[in-house]
């Protein structure tokens, strides 16, 4: 499961609330694509994230183990296809990660302005 999915404490630094599973650029990319596409095929992810099949599989396993995605394997004709969909927990985790990133950016910009 994810290590931390709660909304970051506004009094603490947003970095303390970062989800170790989601706060990783490839996995964040997988979640973002799956969210926008509703369901996405393994090949599309591999092409657009520019990963090897093995590397992508590792990331998908991490996300599936955390309960953030569902992986469905099937066939279209003779061709095997793997479809990835976001679970409700994955949707929440993505939204929270985006929120935390925006908070981080706002903090950094505020700090820069203060200096």
């Amino acid at each position: 499961m994810t290590t931390e999915t709660d909304t970051p404490d506004p009094s603490g630094h947003p970095v303390t609330g970062l989800d170790e599973v989601v706060h990783q650029r490839v996995r964040l990319g997988i979640l973002a694509i799956a969210h926008e596409a509703r369901r996405v095929e393994f090949g599309y992810l591999r092409t657009h994230l520019d990963l090897t099949a093995g590397n992508l599989s590792k990331h998908l396993t991490v996300l599936e183990t955390a309960g953030l995605i569902d992986i469905e394997k099937g066939y279209e004709g003779k061709r095997g296809r793997t479809w990835i969909t976001l679970t409700p927990a994955g949707n929440t985790a993505l939204a929270e990660e985006i929120g935390r990133l925006k908070v981080l950016i706002a903090r950094v910009e505020t700090t820069t302005e203060d200096q």
Partner: peptide
């Protein structure tokens, strides 16, 4: 498969997410 450090540029992460979503 390790997560990146929390200090990774959030601007860049968000920009990359936007690019991917736009592409989809």
């Amino acid at each position: 498969t390790d997560s990146v450090s929390a200090g990774d540029d959030p601007h860049r992460l968000l920009a990359d997410v936007r690019n991917l979503v736009g592409r989809v």
